[in-house]
């Protein structure tokens, strides 16, 4: 068990999923704290989550301004030291902007905001997001974004395909096809991790699928992976 492991949930001006993420962390036995983006010391925390929302209004470019929030220097330090860092939706976009994860997220193929459950196939368990899952598992988790379309230059993508892709959009049977791709992401990429596996990001919202009353519990395995990772490393 990892009861009491402290998770910093970073709040940028314009974040909006911070309370949901904190609720989920609590439900899964971790000890979350909302941390304002001007904080510069996260050494008391065992892990960091960048939640969804529209940090700094997503002005200029999604994640572009948040990436320079004071807290991000500390997030980068922890990421380098091997601390689990997870970006969900807007948090994923910020991690990409900050260069902690490769690639970028651009507008959905159909130029419409998408809020609906999608199926995800687990591609790798070498990450803080997927370590408790099994490769080939298919999870049903809500997607909720306008800029969820993953892009990366060819060499970056080739490199990433060496185990860095942890989740792909699939159909209910786990087959990955263009029809199962909701937003045009390259290679149906929904979630990725860095080489060390301690920094991960995904567009769908696992915290929205943790209780039967909300329609799915498939997000638990991902967040449980994260919680279970909290005591594996020290910063």
């Amino acid at each position: 068990m990892t009861i009491g492991r402290r998770v910093a949930v970073i709040v940028f001006p314009g974040s909006n999923c911070e309370r949901d993420v904190a609720y989920a962390m609590q439900l899964l036995g971790a000890d979350p704290e909302l941390v304002w983006h001007r904080e510069t010391d996260l050494s008391e925390f065992d892990g960091v989550i960048l939640p969804g929302g529209f940090a700094h209004g997503d002005y200029l470019r999604t994640g572009a301004i948040a990436r320079f929030s004071p807290v991000m220097t500390e997030v980068e330090r922890l990421a380098d030291a091997g601390t689990p860092v997870l970006g969900i939706c807007n948090g994923f976009q910020i991690l990409c902007e900050a260069g902690l994860l490769p690639g970028a997220l651009v507008a959905n193929r159909d130029l419409k905001f998408i809020c609906r459950p999608v199926h995800l196939r687990v591609e790798s368990t070498d990450s803080v997001l997927t370590r408790a899952a099994t490769v080939g598992d298919v999870l049903r988790i809500p997607l909720n974004s306008f800029e969820g379309n993953y892009v990366a230059p060819a060499p970056v993508l080739d490199d990433l395909e060496n185990g860095g892709v942890v989740l792909r959009y699939s159909d209910a049977d786990g087959s990955v096809s263009d029809a199962a791709n909701p937003n045009g992401s390259l290679n149906n990429i929904a979630g990725i991790a860095n080489g060390g596996g301690n920094v991960a990001g995904l567009m769908p919202h696992p915290e929205r699928a943790i209780e039967t009353v909300l329609g799915s519990t498939d997000g638990r395995i991902l967040l449980e992976s994260f919680v279970a990772s909290l005591d594996r490393v020290t910063a």
Partner: peptide
């Protein structure tokens, strides 16, 4: 097109 799930 609407986020209809926020706040759980």
């Amino acid at each position: 097109q609407y986020d209809h799930q926020l706040f759980l």
